[in-house]
């Protein structure tokens, strides 16, 4: 079972934060098919968020085929977000961490690293578009 952390100051609306955290947990292998999500009541009692917000997030996840409500039992994970298996993620995370260390040693600060990453992502997107 996972718990949600909702950031009131984030520009991301609370329901989307829940969706993202479930997807993230699935990608990282924290959640797997057959696992149960916390009930709306449990989420609400822990975060003081509107119940409809949680319902909306779960409906989004359901529409994407990731979870499925079972009457009287709760909401269960039935699928995984498309993409590589969980292992791939942690492997890539490790190599990114290594890259960040290299960049720091080269004298880049966090802001420069972030903008470099953004530029690279943008360039990759442009490349895909033209391809």
């Amino acid at each position: 079972m996972i718990s949600f952390r909702l950031d009131g100051r984030s520009v991301v609306p609370p329901y989307l934060q829940i969706v993202q955290q479930v997807r993230q947990a699935l990608r990282m292998g924290v959640l797997d098919v057959g696992d149960k999500l916390p009930t709306v009541r449990e989420v609400v009692a822990a975060t003081a968020v509107n119940p409809n917000t949680v319902l909306k997030a779960y409906r989004d996840l359901e529409r994407d085929g990731l979870v499925e409500p079972r009457a009287g039992h709760g909401t269960f994970v039935v699928g995984r977000p498309s993409g590589p298996p969980p292992g791939t993620h942690s492997r890539l995370a490790r190599s990114l961490a290594q890259w960040v260390r290299g960049a720091r040693e080269a004298g880049l600060d966090d802001e420069s690293i972030e903008s470099l990453l953004r530029i690279t992502l943008q360039a990759a997107a442009d490349e895909e578009e033209t391809a």
Binding site: V44, A45, T47
Partner: peptide
């Protein structure tokens, strides 16, 4: 305040 609102939200979730 947080506890109060959580209590409230939980009741609505019921």
């Amino acid at each position: 305040r947080r506890q109060f609102l959580a209590h409230l939200a939980e009741a609505v979730a019921g």
